[in-house]
């Protein structure tokens, strides 16, 4: 047990040193890289390691007679969560999300330190000591709080009320509900039932499973499946359509959406927000092909009322591409990212 806790303590110390380095900008946040494709699990895993490390540190401190008071354990852990979110995770997390996480972790800390009566008493003791002014130092602290707390709260209030010239927060609806149907080049497409005419098997029939089996491997590297190279001139059917979609993509779309389809094209950073990142599991992977068809056809100008604040400069591609070309581009986007279009069956 002691050996296990020693390892935990070592992990805790190393982790803390790294975090302190990141806070003071001695060590860049990406020194320990967040690996693309595994980031969310990596973050949870790191967090778990920190908790295990703190448990080890606490155990070791107790065993050498230098137990950390419960009050400082609680406050310290909460401070750690706030600092970790602010300085470790990159790109920076918006304040609204950090505020949510901070509140939840504060509640979690409260639940931990007050889960039983002894812990709660121990946690409260320094607070009660100050309130009771049980010693000279505590008395001094009590006066300090009496003066400082109203000033701090007043400062926060002033800061909240003072007029600011910052751009207002936007509650953007990224995926507004699509219409039931859309008319492109005079033809009406019902979004719930329409299918990509080029998502076909060698017999020429619509076939999700066949096409899904020929998309690139997901994860790092995005490898092509063996014998499924769309740029092989001999390929016909689905893979040929993917190639044609790719050609249309690189002629029209990649300037903004990037040659890796990650929204970081040549012109991308002229816009805010930058174009959609198709490799993110929160974009096309969540949507039906017909949704993408509708968005590509109608562009930013065709966003419905719900799509506030309509922050999209994408052209309505129906003015430049044929229906077939749009379907092929959509096909290519799914092939390249390795995602499957959403279906409802």
């Amino acid at each position: 047990m002691k050996a296990l806790m020693s390892i935990g303590a070592l992990v805790g110390v190393v982790g803390l040193l790294l975090l302190v380095g990141m806070i003071f900008d001695v060590i860049p946040s990406n020194t320990v890289r967040l690996v693309e494709g595994y980031m969310p699990f990596q973050m949870l895993l790191e967090f778990t390691c920190y908790v295990a490390g703190f448990a080890g540190l606490s155990y070791m401190a107790s065993s050498i007679g230098m137990a950390i008071p419960r009050f400082w354990q609680g406050i310290g852990f909460w401070a750690f969560v706030l600092l970790y979110l602010k300085f470790r995770v990159y790109p920076p997390i918006p304040f609204s999300v950090r505020a949510m996480y901070g509140t939840v972790s504060l509640v979690a800390v409260f639940m931990w330190v007050s889960a039983n009566e002894e812990d709660w008493k121990e946690f409260k003791r320094p607070i009660m000591n100050v309130l009771d002014a049980s010693s000279g130092t505590n008395k001094l602290l009590r006066y300090a709080y009496l003066i400082l707390l109203p000033i701090i709260i007043g400062g926060f209030s002033f800061n909240a009320m003072v007029p600011k010239s910052e751009e207002p927060i936007e509650l953007r609806t990224v995926h507004p509900a699509p219409p039931a149907s859309t008319k492109v080049h005079g033809k009406t497409f019902v979004l719930q039932t329409s299918q990509n005419p080029y998502r076909v098997n060698p017999e020429g029939k619509y076939d999700q499973e066949f096409t899904n089996a020929n998309i690139v491997e997901q994860g790092m590297g995005r490898l092509m499946k063996p014998n499924a190279n769309p740029w092989d001139e001999k390929n016909e059917g689905y893979l040929k359509y993917v190639r044609e979609g790719g050609e249309i993509f690189f002629q029209n779309c990649h300037f903004c959406h990037g040659d890796n389809l990650n929204g970081r094209g040549l012109h991308a950073f002229a816009f805010n927000p930058i174009p959609a990142n198709f490799t993110d599991p929160g974009t096309i992977a969540q949507l039906q092909e017909t949704f993408i068809f509708w968005r590509v056809s109608k562009g930013g100008i065709g966003l419905p009322n719900e799509g506030f604040p309509w922050a999209s400069v994408m052209p309505p591609w129906e003015q430049h591409l044929t229906v077939d070309e749009i379907w092929k581009v959509v096909l290519f986007e799914y092939w390249h990212t390795g995602y499957y279009p959403r279906t409802w069956d």
Partner: peptide, 20 residues
């Protein structure tokens, strides 16, 4: 879809946070 200022959106480099 996170609530953020346009400056935060720019710093994040896209509408979706790559981790969260």
């Amino acid at each position: 879809t996170m609530v953020m200022t346009p400056a935060e959106l720019k710093a994040m480099g896209g509408q979706q946070h790559p981790v969260l």
